[in-house]
Every structure is written in structure tokens, then in C-alpha cells.
Nucleic acid binder design. Structure first.
Lengths: 175, 175
DNA sequence: TGCCTATATGTTATAGTATAACATGGTTGT
DNA sequence: ACAACCATGTTATACTATAACATATAGGCA
């Protein structure tokens, strides 16, 4: 309830988002004694540069723009670190990655992926978690690591579809 | 509630499962006027030969045992057909496929994947669906195609872990 | 029956995603 | 300075999936 909205307007100040993500990462690494190296930080910046999911090879291309010639493994190693520290999440259904934007401990986030603008919202509904664990328990199954990735339409794109003329430019999103 | 248990004992008569799956496929294709060709049928048989998910290239290897030398695309084409007819489901988090074992219309199945024996149970909890759609709606998001794949432990493997000596052979499963 | 068209399959090549294995370099604490 | 550990570089390769075009086969219809 006190979390920020999952989907921000396409004209929101994304630099503030990116800054917050990086600041959070600094804090997490300092607290845990892990190292947010230049390379890891750069990968996180790229992943955090948009609320849409980005693929590992696209990340690599962005790294190349900086003049280097990184191998895929370098990207995956950085992603492994970031994922292990819950700073990045993998979207299995897209083979892509997003920066974590939610606060508090991780217990089965639900990812809402807009089919139009590609924006991914990270939701942590307790009710969904309870329903899932409860239903699984009914089959004698104990949940360890749920993957919940929902394709659909965010409010802005849905509105744009219903009234294609109005606010058409609002569907561009991307950042 | 009237559905069969999601996870069957490892010594269940799997031939009956496979027969039921194939019979259902015949019925679906007859009703829709689509063709369950030899190749598609063979792929379905392979996928249905176990309650664990199987990868496309593993399916190809099994096809080769029959003397042919199929290309990957042949497997993917058969899988496309079977998935389009809801006879097979893709497990995105594993890049693998399972035969559909549930009755009734498909509306966001939840797949329970045992981390030990690999068995996948297909659950269709209305409560999970409602919780997910409701929570998403709270963020202005309309659900189209959820991917819910839960890693965890099935009852048999959980029991075996708690008491490793007892019923150790029961954890073999696979079929 | 024989052609026509849809659909299905064969064939070859390639795109896209991810990891293995081993060498080298940098940081930290002593 | 040294040792130990962690991070990165380098090269090669495994695994997953699709594109593009040729050929074949099944069923409907003249």
C-alpha cells in the first residue's frame, strides 16, 4: 500500500528512478561487504535505464558503446552478481532482465509485463502468495521459488487502445 | 476438486496416463478438424512418456532412436501445433515441455515443478487466478497470459528428504 | 480420376541465449 | 612484499530456437 505505483507515467523523471536504484545498490553492497565494481555498476545502470526488460546481448551492445569489447560471459557474470543480491531480476519468459524496484524482502515477486510498451511492474501481493502457497499445499507441494510473470496491458496502453487517438504519445514509454 | 491428484506415486501405471493423453489428443484433433500426423503423435508420445518436462533437443534425440534424422525445426513445428491445441505446455523457466494432464478449459494453469524428481504438476486454482487478476487490476493492469511456474518439492520427495532412509526408492520417479 | 490448393515436412543455414575452462589481473589483510 | 581471494579476460563451445526456401502429401472439387 505504501509502495510507489507499479507503472509510472511515460513522462516520469526516470533519472530519479535510476539514481534510486544505484543508491540502493551501493547501500546493499556496503552493508554486505560485496563489491559493486565498475563493470557491475555499469551493467546495473544499463538494466536500470528503462522499466522494460533488456536481454543480455543488448546489455553487451550497450557496453560496447563505451568503447570496450566485452564477451557475453562478462555480462552474465555481472548479472549473476546483481541477481544474487536481488538488485536485478530475470524474466524467464523473455530471457531478459530488469532492475529491482521494490522495497523490502523478496518472497515471490509477481512481474506484470505490458505487451505494448514492454514495461515491467514488480508486484508483491501477499494475497497472491498466500493463494499460491495454499493451493500448492493442497497438492502436498511446498513452494520454494515461484516464477510469476504475467503478460497483459498496463493502464496507459489499455486506455490508448480503447481510444487510439487520445494520448497516443503516452504509449511510447520505454524509460 | 474432482481432478485427479497432481502428483501420482512413482509406481503408478504410467501407460494409462500416456494412453489417456493420446486418446484426448485424437479427440481434440477430430473435433477441430486438425491433423494429428505421425510425427506430431510421436512427439506427443515422447513428451507424455514422463511427468517431467523434456527439452526440444531431448525430444529430437528420442526421435532419432526411431531411425530418422529429424532437424530441430521438425520438433519445434510439432510442438507449436501441440501447444496451439493445448495438448502440450511450455515451461519457460526450464525451456522444456510437458503434456497437458488437466481437464477443462485453460485459464492460467500453475505449474508445480519438483526440484528433486522433476515431476511437473499442472494446477488450475481459481483462487490463485482471482488473487492474481485482482492484484494486477489494483495496479491498473489487465491480465492476458500468466506464466506461473513454481519450483519446490512434491510430497513424496519432501517426505524422502525428511526421512532419507525410508522409501528412498520412491524418490526415483521420472515416469 | 486428376488437378488444385492447403497443409505438412525436408533441408540448409543461421540467430539468439548461456556456460565451461583456464589464464590473468587487482584488492585486501597481514 | 606476500598470500589468498575475488574479479575479469580470453577462447571456445553448448544449448535453444527460427528463417527461408524446396518438396511432398492429403483432401476437396471439377
Amino acid at each position: 500500500m505504501s509502495d510507489p505505483p507499479l507503472f509510472l507515467a511515460s513522462d516520469h523523471d526516470h533519472r530519479a528512478c535510476a539514481r534510486a536504484i544505484l543508491a540502493h545498490a551501493e547501500g546493499v553492497c556496503r552493508a554486505r561487504g560485496t563489491r559493486l565494481t565498475v563493470q557491475r555498476r555499469r551493467v546495473l545502470e544499463i538494466v536500470a535505464s528503462s522499466h522494460a526488460a533488456i536481454g543480455a546481448y543488448a546489455i553487451m551492445d550497450r557496453l560496447k558503446e563505451g568503447g570496450g569489447h566485452p564477451a557475453p560471459i562478462a555480462v552474465y557474470r555481472a548479472l549473476d552478481f546483481l541477481i544474487a543480491n536481488s538488485l536485478v531480476h530475470r524474466i524467464a519468459s523473455r530471457n531478459a532482465y530488469i532492475a529491482c524496484t521494490h522495497v523490502g524482502p523478496h518472497r515471490g515477486s509477481q512481474f506484470l509485463i505490458c505487451r505494448r510498451c514492454g514495461t515491467v511492474g514488480e508486484m508483491t501481493s501477499e494475497r497472491v502468495w498466500q493463494a499460491l502457497v495454499g493451493a500448492a499445499a493442497g497438492a502436498g507441494f511446498s513452494v520454494v521459488a515461484p516464477v510469476i510473470e504475467v503478460e497483459g496491458e498496463c493502464a496507459a496502453c489499455h486506455a490508448a487502445t480503447a481510444a487510439p487517438d487520445a494520448a497516443a504519445t503516452d504509449t511510447v514509454a520505454g524509460t
